[in-house]
Nucleic acid binder design. Structure first.
Lengths: 226, 226
DNA sequence: CTGAAAACTGTACCGCGAGTACAGGAGGGG
DNA sequence: CCCCTCCTGTACTCGCGGTACAGTTTTCAG
């Protein structure tokens, strides 16, 4: 009962790391059992086939993912009353969390499944779809709260704006992994922060930012060639 | 000589579609030769192994990708003198091109390789890395031209800004594929356009945009809920 | 302490797909 | 005519996914 859960989780740990590096097709069961220190029969006792492993892997990943976002943005909500400031802080916290990952972000299972879809059954594809829709709902809810207080400088659709968060995260992960630059992802999150800030806040910058602006572009900000 | 190239390309066509749907590991050579109408020996005459196929596939994809960006943004450059307006037009053209794809974007091979990296040799990983760096250089060049004329409302690093384009594209593809919503990618490109527009253009909108704004949101655009 | 269920191990096997090794054949160009 | 490109055919190896099933150890409830 308890022991079984533990072994199962150990398999999932090993499998997740392998799958994010090599894809599902590139990850062999034999390799998983070797690293877990289990036999083949032991493996198939826990998962009847690879599809079931993928299912468990994806569900666990999504749950964990949701938990992290819950923590970050509820923490940001505790520190800031204003929905916009709280969201901007949340993005900053997220960016910090991402840049603290020692080897960079390992990759997103949702993207892995997305590029492997035809080999899985509909259940997995639906799970994956629902995960993305959950992100849309989560960030959409936050943007709606912001829009109850602030009006956007440009006309935007809330769902598309919410999707922008997911896009930048997924895309940032691909860039970061491909370039082998762990920081790129965190930087992209901060760029997204600038986007949200510009969209809802008037042009007058906060003193701190104004100073950095001058340092980089010169006082008047005119014609910086580089 | 000529015949060989043709067969080779036919294999690559079939392989590209398959790999984008199922990943490299999920695509069998037997399936490729069946669809191409060639024998196994014939296949291995053209590609000595799967790794070589991947290499050819990726190189062809990247070349094609570059060609498309060249066309779109040089066309936009012909129509608009101003670097910012030209870039904004380019994003619009890109968005239109993407929403015209009948079955949505088939997926990006760079992302596929990124999530499959460990199984390929260093050459492929380097090719992939260079492709992303080429995007950075391409869009970076464009943003530098823009910054020679306009100063950004917020301090931004040019490379990070250029990466934002790649992020939104890669992320948008993942979202579009996962959600099975072909339009999402095109919408995300337009969101990126809004970002660039806000970053470089003063809050006062151009007459043309103001008209469309009015049509959608009403004259003052105040307190827009949703 | 016991007994049954849970959590495995061990062995043996099937079929598929990647990849190898060659031998040979069609067709076109110099 | 011959050689080179572009294949086909056959036959094999090997790793891996998956099955089958019998037996063994561990755990925990009563």
């Amino acid at each position: 009962m308890r022991k079984g859960e533990e072994t199962r989780n150990r398999i999932l740990d090993v499998a997740e790391a392998a799958v994010l590096q090599k894809g599902f097709g590139g990850t062999s069961i034999e390799e998983l059992i070797a690293e877990t220190g289990i036999t083949k029969s032991g493996f198939f006792y826990h998962f009847k086939d690879k599809n079931e492993l993928a299912k468990a892997l994806l569900n666990r990943y999504i749950e964990n993912d949701e938990r992290i976002y819950d923590e970050i943005f509820s923490r940001a909500r505790d520190l800031m009353d204003d929905p916009l400031q709280s969201f901007l802080l949340g993005l900053k916290l997220l960016s910090e969390l991402l840049s603290d990952l020692p080897n960079g972000h390992p990759g997103c299972l949702v993207a892995t499944v997305c590029y492997y879809e035809r080999l899985f059954d509909h259940e997995i594809q639906d799970t994956n779809r629902n995960a993305v829709l959950a992100w849309r709902r989560r960030f959409g809810r936050m943007f709606r709260e912001i829009m109850a207080v602030y009006s956007p400088r440009e006309p935007v659709d809330v769902d598309q704006l919410a999707d922008m968060v997911s896009s930048v995260l997924e895309g940032g992960i691909v860039l970061s992994k491909t370039l082998k630059e762990p920081n790129t992802l965190a930087e992209q999150v901060l760029m997204l922060r600038i986007f949200v800030k510009m969209l809802f806040l008037p042009a007058i910058e906060s003193p701190l930012v104004a100073v950095r602006h001058d340092q980089i572009y010169g006082a008047a900000g005119g014609g910086g060639r580089l």
